[in-house]
């Protein structure tokens, strides 16, 4: 297990390092920078003025120098400042991260808590009406883009109930009821795709597991059906499901960006998209690195959980 863990950690750091280089270069290869944004259109200025503006923002050195400044600062706990607002990146993420984390956790919770029972029911009652309903529902869930669903939910609630979620972000710890009102609709919107994927995966793996010998043996021994399902079938069926859920964290992060914009939630996705359009390099770099890190850590955790669920994996 320690060796398994070590391998995963080394792989994780290597991935994050590679991502940092790719992201750093990608944003610089995009046409235009924050100085062009500021001097855009009618505010055209002399090359001297542009150079001065770039210097003020720390964009005047070589790429290697700029990369070194960025990375070395990270190791000193300094993520830098936004070129556009001069807010510290730590402060920006300090306010944006809780929003995105809550949205993803809620989305994931809704997806998993609905998908697993539905998948199990669908598998156990194969070819019944409930199975067909779940399968059709799953197909619809896979087909609906989350931004479309988010917009539809907003329009529906505003037209029918004359209600929209609270418009100003409030912390879960200060105003839990208002916070949940604010997050419920966006969480549903980002959860549907993951819900459909997980439900289909649970159904498929449950069907497979239910036909295995040890399940049949357990049933033959007289173990109650619910216990066979929960302890023998479901636990083994969940191994590939956990992997899928790990990957879905990445999907949820991606989906969260657009949903945050639609619902006006000041999360990392909203911040990142604003930063991209303004070529705010430090924000883009750090946000992307953060998302990549979360994604890599999530997958590492999946590997570890996988090993816990099936000890043979950690040995191999």
């Amino acid at each position: 297990m320690p060796r398994f863990l070590l391998n995963r950690l080394i792989s994780m750091f290597a991935t994050v390092f590679a991502v940092s280089i790719v992201v750093f270069l990608m944003v610089r290869f995009l046409p235009g920078n924050v100085v062009d944004v500021q001097f855009g259109g009618d505010a055209t200025a002399t090359p001297g003025a542009r150079l001065e503006a770039a210097k003020r923002l720390g964009l005047d050195g070589s790429y290697a120098h700029q990369y070194w400044v960025w990375i070395s600062r990270i190791f000193h706990g300094d993520l830098g400042k936004s070129l556009l607002t001069q807010r510290s990146i730590a402060e920006i993420f300090g306010s944006a991260l809780p929003v995105t984390i809550e949205l993803i956790v809620l989305g994931l919770a809704i997806a998993v808590s609905v998908a697993i029972p539905l998948g199990v029911i669908s598998a156990v009652r194969r070819n019944s009406a409930s199975d067909y309903a779940s399968r059709v529902g799953g197909l619809i869930g896979l087909s609906i883009p989350n931004f479309w669903l988010a917009t539809l939910l907003l329009i529906f609630f505003s037209r029918v109930f004359h209600w929209v979620p609270p418009l100003q972000y409030v912390s879960l710890f200060k105003h839990p009821w208002e916070n949940l009102q604010e997050f419920f609709m966006p969480a549903v919107a980002i959860s549907v795709f993951t819900l459909a994927i997980v439900m289909r995966m649970v159904r498929a793996t449950m069907l497979e597991v239910l036909n295995l010998d040890y399940v049949r043996t357990a049933r033959a021994k007289g173990v109650p059906r619910w216990r066979v399902l929960r302890k023998h079938a479901l636990r083994n069926a969940l191994i590939p499901v956990v992997t899928v859920v790990g990957f879905e964290v990445g999907v949820l992060i991606g989906g969260a960006a657009i949903v945050e914009i639609i619902f006006g939630l000041p999360g990392v996705g909203f911040t990142l998209l604003n930063a991209i359009s303004n070529r705010d390099y430090p924000v883009i770099q750090n946000a992307t690195l953060l998302i990549a890190t979360v994604f890599v850590v999530a997958n590492t955790l999946v590997d570890l959980i996988y090993g816990w669920l099936d000890p043979r994996i950690s040995v191999t």
Partner: peptide, 21 residues
């Protein structure tokens, strides 16, 4: 005066319909 930042136009329309803004 309370300014709320709502960049999505459909969200602004929904908020207007609901009387939230």
């Amino acid at each position: 005066i309370n300014y709320r930042i709502i960049t999505d136009e459909q969200a602004r329309i929904a908020a207007l319909r609901a009387g939230a803004i």
